[in-house]
Simulated scan of single mutants.
Amino acid sequence: MSNVRPAAVAGYFYPADRNQLASDIRMLLDKTTVKPGSACPKALIVPHAGYIYSGQTAAHAYRLLEPWAQTISRVVLLGPSHRTFLRGLALPSADFFATPLGDIPIDTETCQRLAALPQVHVIPTSHISEHSLEVQLPFLQTVLKTFSLVPMAIGLASPQEIADVLDLCRGGQETLIVVSSDLSHYQAYEQARIHDTNTLKHILSNDGQISDDDACGAAPIRGLLYLARDLGLKAELLDYRNSGDTAGDKDRVVGYAAIAFSEAT
């Protein structure tokens, strides 16, 4: 009998109804455009708030994948652990992750290889209610159709530890790395824009000087930047806005960015 991690935030962060969810994602994707000749991204940084807040920003990253739907067959997904204190990186024990759009198979072979690393642990409880990974899945299901998943919740881990994990499973063009992260939290609108602009300058220059105050997924971002420097990947900002631009007030906002990393040409 298969072990399925059920959707935990359907109906809260995104619609629980399959048809409504599919329609909302398609609408968000159709509002974006992709430059002709865009390269296949090796990695993405994508926000993880409710879709009414950050869905349009996320759509800018996921629309970029549509021409490569037949190429990408595995997604390595990293996001911060919001509810469970962790040291290192946590894998699930599940065979599938479920959303209203269906079940996604876990790449159990890769997970078993990763679990042999000292910084990686199988901790099912870290995934039970974690939204940072789950909210990415319906977008991925829409644009890629069929793929396997390597999901990891990130706690206290060094950039080198995370980069070593990514290096072990980065593969070729068939593998996409997705880091789930919002930016600054609960500052006034203009202050947040200044803060986030500075953070984005560090990310876009592959400078890993990102603190936990700059992004809730700072640890996986730092690990990705470490790997990006080794691989010579170039970062491109696809979209930036905050909750004051979308569905919230401007007194206490959360920042969102979509960033793609591709091989330099």
Score class of each variant (00 low, 15 high):
residue 144 L to S: 10
residue 53 Y to C: 07
residue 104 I to T: 12
residue 128 I to P: 00
residue 149 L to E: 13
residue 144 L to V: 12
residue 154 I to L: 06
residue 115 A to C: 07
residue 142 T to D: 06
residue 135 V to P: 04
residue 144 L to W: 14
residue 158 S to G: 12
residue 163 A to P: 07
residue 74 R to S: 15
residue 107 D to P: 07
residue 153 A to I: 01
residue 136 Q to E: 15
residue 76 V to P: 09
residue 113 R to G: 11
residue 80 P to S: 12
residue 173 Q to S: 15
residue 139 F to L: 10
residue 84 T to L: 13
residue 102 G to Q: 06
residue 100 P to R: 07
residue 120 V to Y: 09
residue 73 S to W: 03
residue 59 A to F: 08
residue 90 A to G: 05
residue 168 L to P: 00
residue 58 A to P: 11
residue 93 S to E: 12
residue 108 T to Y: 04
residue 61 A to T: 09
residue 105 P to M: 03
residue 168 L to V: 04
residue 92 P to K: 02
residue 72 I to H: 02
residue 166 L to R: 09
residue 146 T to V: 11
residue 96 F to D: 01
residue 108 T to L: 14
residue 105 P to Y: 02
residue 118 P to D: 08
residue 160 Q to Y: 06
residue 138 P to V: 05
residue 113 R to W: 14
residue 134 E to A: 00
residue 150 V to S: 12
residue 153 A to F: 08
residue 131 H to V: 03
residue 159 P to T: 08
residue 113 R to T: 06
residue 169 C to Q: 09
residue 54 S to D: 07
residue 157 A to P: 13
residue 88 G to Y: 00
residue 157 A to R: 06
residue 140 L to E: 10
residue 96 F to N: 02
residue 149 L to I: 09
residue 136 Q to W: 09
residue 136 Q to M: 13
residue 68 W to K: 00
residue 163 A to V: 03
residue 127 H to V: 03
residue 96 F to G: 01
residue 107 D to N: 09
residue 90 A to P: 02
residue 138 P to F: 08
residue 141 Q to P: 09
residue 60 H to L: 01
residue 60 H to G: 02
residue 144 L to T: 10
residue 149 L to R: 03
residue 170 R to K: 14
residue 80 P to F: 11
residue 133 L to S: 07
residue 171 G to H: 07
residue 141 Q to A: 10
residue 113 R to F: 14
residue 126 S to L: 00
residue 73 S to Y: 01
residue 173 Q to G: 14
residue 171 G to F: 06
residue 156 L to R: 04
residue 67 P to K: 02
residue 59 A to W: 04
residue 113 R to E: 06
residue 158 S to F: 14
residue 61 A to V: 11
residue 171 G to A: 12
residue 78 L to H: 03
residue 151 P to I: 04
residue 85 F to P: 04
residue 113 R to K: 15
residue 81 S to T: 00
residue 59 A to T: 07
residue 103 D to K: 13
residue 169 C to F: 15
residue 63 R to P: 05
residue 95 D to L: 05
residue 59 A to N: 08
residue 160 Q to E: 10
residue 64 L to A: 07
residue 84 T to D: 02
residue 100 P to K: 10
residue 130 E to Y: 14
residue 84 T to S: 11
residue 134 E to S: 00
residue 152 M to D: 00
residue 156 L to D: 15
residue 163 A to K: 05
residue 67 P to T: 05
residue 64 L to Y: 01
residue 67 P to H: 06
residue 124 P to R: 05
residue 150 V to I: 15
